[in-house]
Computed example of a mutant assay.
Amino acid sequence: MTVASMTGYARAEGRDAQTSWVWEAKSVNGRGLELRCRLASGHDALEIAARDAAAKRLKRGNVQLSLTVSRVGEQSLLQVNTPLLAQLLSMCKEWEGRFPGVAPARLDGLLAIRGVLEPEVDPERGDTEETRQLREAAMKVSLDSMLDQLAAMRADEGARIAAVLNGQLDEITRLTAKAAACASLRPDAIRERFKAQLAAVLEAAPSLAEDRVAQEVALLVVKADVREELDRLSAHVEAARELLGQGGAIGRKLDFLAQEFNREANTLCSKSSDVELTRVGLDLKAVIDQFKEQVQNIE
Score class of each variant (00 low, 15 high):
residue 155 A to D: 04
residue 155 A to F: 00
residue 155 A to W: 00
residue 157 E to D: 09
residue 157 E to N: 02
residue 157 E to H: 00
residue 158 G to H: 03
residue 158 G to L: 01
residue 159 A to N: 04
residue 160 R to Q: 07
residue 160 R to W: 01
residue 161 I to E: 01
residue 161 I to V: 07
residue 161 I to M: 00
residue 162 A to Q: 06
residue 163 A to H: 06
residue 163 A to T: 09
residue 163 A to E: 12
residue 163 A to F: 04
residue 164 V to N: 06
residue 165 L to N: 02
residue 165 L to I: 13
residue 165 L to Y: 00
residue 165 L to H: 03
residue 165 L to V: 11
residue 166 N to A: 07
residue 167 G to Q: 09
residue 167 G to S: 13
residue 168 Q to A: 10
residue 170 D to W: 07
residue 170 D to T: 14
residue 170 D to E: 15
residue 171 E to G: 02
residue 173 T to E: 14
residue 173 T to S: 13
residue 173 T to K: 02
residue 175 L to A: 04
residue 175 L to S: 05
residue 175 L to Q: 10
residue 176 T to P: 00
residue 176 T to I: 07
residue 177 A to Y: 11
residue 177 A to W: 07
residue 178 K to L: 12
residue 178 K to W: 02
residue 179 A to Q: 11
residue 179 A to P: 09
residue 180 A to L: 11
residue 180 A to V: 10
residue 180 A to H: 05
residue 180 A to C: 03
residue 181 A to F: 05
residue 181 A to L: 09
residue 181 A to Q: 14
residue 181 A to Y: 03
residue 182 C to V: 05
residue 182 C to F: 10
residue 183 A to R: 11
residue 183 A to I: 15
residue 183 A to Y: 07
residue 184 S to W: 10
residue 184 S to E: 14
residue 184 S to H: 06
residue 185 L to I: 04
residue 185 L to M: 09
residue 187 P to T: 13
residue 188 D to F: 08
residue 189 A to S: 14
residue 190 I to K: 03
residue 190 I to W: 07
residue 191 R to H: 15
residue 192 E to L: 11
residue 192 E to K: 10
residue 193 R to K: 11
residue 194 F to P: 03
residue 194 F to R: 15
residue 195 K to P: 02
residue 195 K to L: 13
residue 195 K to I: 08
residue 196 A to H: 03
residue 197 Q to D: 15
residue 197 Q to R: 15
residue 198 L to E: 06
residue 198 L to W: 12
residue 199 A to P: 08
